[in-house]
Computed example of a mutant assay.
Amino acid sequence: MGLIKIFSGSEILALQLKDKLESIDLNVVIKDNIQSARLGGFGSADLAVELFIQETDFHKANPVIEAFRMSI
């Protein structure tokens, strides 16, 4: 199994969702393209932070992800 992308958006929203997922004992991987672009000397997009989880954890994470999406 591999990682699946569950969110792409602003850093603030990504960190909120990450905290919610970690509160139910899920490991979350963050890909921060904003920092990568800054360090490389390039500009960045607004939706440059992505969250990934293990495919096998999706059934546990889905209710949290849906509740989060409904709240924003």
Rank of each mutant, 00 (worst) to 15 (best):
A67R: 06
D57E: 10
S71C: 08
G41C: 12
G43K: 09
V29F: 15
K5Y: 05
T56N: 11
A67M: 10
V28N: 06
D57P: 00
E50P: 08
A67Q: 11
R38W: 13
F7H: 01
I4N: 01
F68V: 02
M1H: 14
L39R: 13
Q35T: 15
K31P: 04
I4K: 00
F52I: 07
S23F: 11
S23G: 11
S23D: 12
N62F: 04
K60M: 07
G9C: 05
G2R: 08
V64R: 00
G40L: 14
N33D: 12
V49W: 05
I12C: 07
A48T: 08
S8H: 02
L47S: 09
L26Y: 04
K20A: 08
M1D: 07
V49N: 05
G9Q: 03
G2Q: 04
F52P: 03
V64L: 02
I12D: 08
R69T: 00
I24Q: 07
G41I: 15
A67V: 07
I6N: 03
G43Y: 12
A67P: 00
L39T: 13
I6K: 02
M70D: 12
S8M: 05
L26N: 03
S8W: 01
A37D: 15
A37Y: 08
V49I: 15
N27Y: 11
R69G: 01
S71V: 06
D46C: 10
E66K: 04
Q54S: 07
F68K: 00
G41D: 13
V28Y: 05
L21T: 05
L21N: 05
V28T: 11
I4Q: 00
S10F: 05
F52K: 04
A37H: 13
G9W: 01
L47G: 07
K31S: 10
E50C: 12
F42D: 14
G9P: 02
D46L: 15
D19G: 08
G2P: 02
